[in-house]
Design a protein around this nucleic acid. Sequence first.
DNA 1: CATTGCCTCACCATTTCGGGGGAGTTGAAA
DNA 2: TTTCAACTCCCCCGAAATGGTGAGGCAATG
Lengths: 238, 238
Amino acid sequence: MGKLNLDQILKDLDATSALEGLQDIIVALRDAFNVDHMVYHWVDSSGDQYGCGTYSPEWVELYTARNYLRVDPVIQGCYQRFHPVDWKRLDWSSKPAWEIFALAMEYGIGNQGYSIPIRGPNGQFALFTASHNCDDDAWAEFTEAYNRDLILIAHYFNRKALEFEPGRQSEQSRALSPREVDAMTLIAMGYSRAQVAESLSISQNTLRVYIESARFKLGALNTTHAVARALSRGLIVV
Amino acid sequence: MGKLNLDQILKDLDATSALEGLQDIIVALRDAFNVDHMVYHWVDSSGDQYGCGTYSPEWVELYTARNYLRVDPVIQGCYQRFHPVDWKRLDWSSKPAWEIFALAMEYGIGNQGYSIPIRGPNGQFALFTASHNCDDDAWAEFTEAYNRDLILIAHYFNRKALEFEPGRQSEQSRALSPREVDAMTLIAMGYSRAQVAESLSISQNTLRVYIESARFKLGALNTTHAVARALSRGLIVV
DNA sequence: CATTGCCTCACCATTTCGGGGGAGTTGAAA
DNA sequence: TTTCAACTCCCCCGAAATGGTGAGGCAATG
């Protein structure tokens, strides 16, 4: 399937100096791998998204308009996995999932797909996907052959995309103090403030100061928000 | 520097069926890359750690005993970055950092290092590191040459290590209904119940039913706990 | 030696949440 | 056809969380 010059592609990618360049790269990638589509897409903890790829604008529009992000088994499935995922291995049993798949077929996405999840600091999550229309055997052969190349490309592509994202580095909130981490962790584990305070052997007043300062550092609107942010930024672990 | 048979190594890695096997692999890797040390290390959601590598037991013991994890610039630096990091580019200015480096040298860790951060679901974070004793030019040459291979190996190594970690797949809970997902998502974004209810165009009473049923499904003690669980299980995305 | 960040504690009024009920409609699955 | 899950709405009330403000000690940084 296609002729692949990985070195050249990575070199081109490296030479890219603007976000728009990524679009060209991904088209080149699609051609190099000789698949129907190739897409890169990321989401971060603050809900921002960026995507580029070869899907038709109509499909992208429909996808975003209907907020398929929250239902798409590809997203859902990859989010919990570490390794690349063949679409076949995902759970398409639910109705919305089936619906999305049928619609995707109409828009020429392809019946086969291979998605590589990539994670970055601060809860950044990206997907690099190749999709194609072919039978299972051909697809297995493809993924077998290019699995590693795709992982590398996904990695480099994501790195490049992050470079262009301003405020991504600045967004890194101040680290929480040890006590704040303790407090937020226990709160995230479902304990009430009374329990947390007792567990940390401090007064509830003190505890509240920690929670509030954590909330402030995280730019969170309330405790639950702060827990969510701390979690998705990896500042605490439950 | 060394002869490298990437295919063979990845094949061996793939054939590994026990956690102990990783230790052999990493020794083989060190020899293949012809560096002084190679180490893999991860930190888990529940705070436990696993590491394997070629550092001397004395160093590992000292490192854990003094809890250097919280001070080590390699850990700190990589945690906020996406891309592999050359130790030279880290911030060694703080006193504990300098102390750790001096001590590491004594224990033969090497003056050069290259660490690849890898992230998985649920806040899993791992580091794959090669270290060596040589001058800057030689090291630059090494990293330049094997950068990609190291990334791939880190990726596969981590995947394998995760395979042996039980309890990662077992924590499956019933999926949330669409409305529950909406509710939990907005709650996680920091909105109050009043705002969420308005945003979803439902009454606060109804909203509360969703939150409570989500809490029940997730086995959570309270709303914040439910949000934390939904987030770390990837059921919602903020 | 002044500043800054962290840890600790306190009070108060207000808002929000949590838990306990009950009850009607769809639509799909058994 | 019944059953079940999901979606929608309503009541009450006590317990818990929140927001604002103030303040002292201690360690490290510069």
